[in-house]
Each structure stands twice: as C-alpha cells, then as structure tokens.
C-alpha cells in the first residue's frame, strides 16, 4: 500500500504560487483559508529559498491527538482527513499542528471559527466519493479518480512532489545525485549510465 507524502524541493521552488492557486481553484476554497502556502526565507536576499507547505499528513498526527471530538482519521494511503460534521471549530488542531495547516472560515464577529478546513491531499472526506456533498465540504476527490494532488501536478519546476513516499524519495534522491557536490557518486555515471 502506498504511503502518500509531500516533498518540496527547496532548490527548485521559485515562489510562483501556482500550487496555491491551483488548490484554491480546484477545491473552491473560501477567502482567508489557505490549504497551501509558499513561505520564503531570506526573501530578497541572495540565497533566499522558498517552500510550498500544506498539511503534511503526519504519521502520528498532533492534530488528531488533541481534537476533542476525535474527528480525524488516516486513510490506508496514509492521508490524514477529518469529518466536518463532527468538527466544532475549537482551534486545537491549529495550535498543535507543526505546519500551521488547519484553517478556519471566519463565521461572525468575536473570532468565532467555522469548521476546520485543511489540505486533503485531494482525497475529499468521509462522505461518498465524488458526491456533490463531498465536493462542497472537502473539495475535489482526485485520489478517488486515480489522480494525484493538483498542486504538485501543476508545479512548473516540479519542485513540489506528491505521491507514494518511496517513489518521490527516489526521484529526489536522483536529483541530489545529479546535482553532485558530493563525492560519493564519483564514477557512477560512466559506470552505470545516466539514470544511476
């Protein structure tokens, strides 16, 4: 069984925000809610680097551990999803999440939070796959359609990788080898060919 993961290659990300836009459009995410965002460190300084980040679908997910109504579940693919019919908008998952992934639509004055919304790895929610209800609450379920998350599919530099953890780790490893800079791979290309 695949174990779905995200990986953002900081050497490639050019902070174009295509992933952010693709996500917003695909899932009709409301204003003020960002399932994915790009953060740039040392912005405008030589050596600046950007990372696109969303829910990382943690193995021992802190959000799930603190949720008072226990509304999170992990799919067989390792995707962390939640049930908006149970969520009470308490904000705890946002306090616990290392990546700032949980988001809340503002419902009224005094900072009252709506039901939590976050990246679903384009895998919808607990409602029937690809039903209208699922689309309204959780966005498109591309995984059920046999597709990968749109953010990664749209990434122009292929900095953002989404898919089975072993496969994207292999892709990344090959990139690191190609980039060189480390002597461990000396002679590999001539000995074994370009694909290593």
């Amino acid at each position: 069984m695949a174990r779905m993961k995200f990986l953002c290659d900081a050497e490639r990300c050019i902070e174009c925000n295509s992933c952010v836009t693709a996500c917003k459009n695909e899932h009709e995410v409301p204003w003020g809610v960002n399932r994915r965002r790009v953060v740039t460190l040392n912005d405008g300084v030589p050596g600046e680097k950007s990372i696109s980040v969303a829910c990382m679908h943690c193995t021992d997910a802190p959000c799930a551990a603190v949720c008072p109504v226990d509304c999170f579940y992990t799919t067989d693919d390792g995707i962390v999803l939640h049930d908006k019919d149970l969520c009470i908008g308490c904000g705890y998952c946002f306090y616990a999440c290392p990546f700032g992934a949980p988001q809340y639509p503002q419902q009224s004055a005094f900072g009252v939070r709506g039901k939590m919304d976050k990246c679903t790895f384009c895998a919808g929610g607990p409602l029937a796959d690809n039903s209208n209800k699922e689309y309204e609450k959780y966005g498109r379920n591309r995984i059920a359609e046999g597709k990968l998350p749109l953010c990664a599919e749209m990434c122009s530099t292929k900095a953002l990788l989404a898919g089975d953890g072993d496969m994207i780790a292999d892709i990344y490893r090959q990139r690191v080898l190609k980039r060189g800079g480390r002597p461990q791979t000396w002679g590999w290309e001539s000995a074994y060919g370009a694909s290593g």
Partner: peptide
C-alpha cells in the same frame, strides 16, 4: 519568512515546535 498568502490562520512560519509540547 515571507508569504503572500493571507488569512487569519495563515502563518509565515514553516514549522512551529510548541504544538508538540502542548499536545
């Protein structure tokens, strides 16, 4: 860091460590 995304719960911090301690 810097992020162009904005929203009440959108942060420009990539990893916050306090969450695990709180949990």
């Amino acid at each position: 860091g810097y992020t162009s995304a904005s929203g009440p719960y959108t942060t420009n911090v990539l990893i916050q460590n306090g969450g695990q301690n709180w949990r």
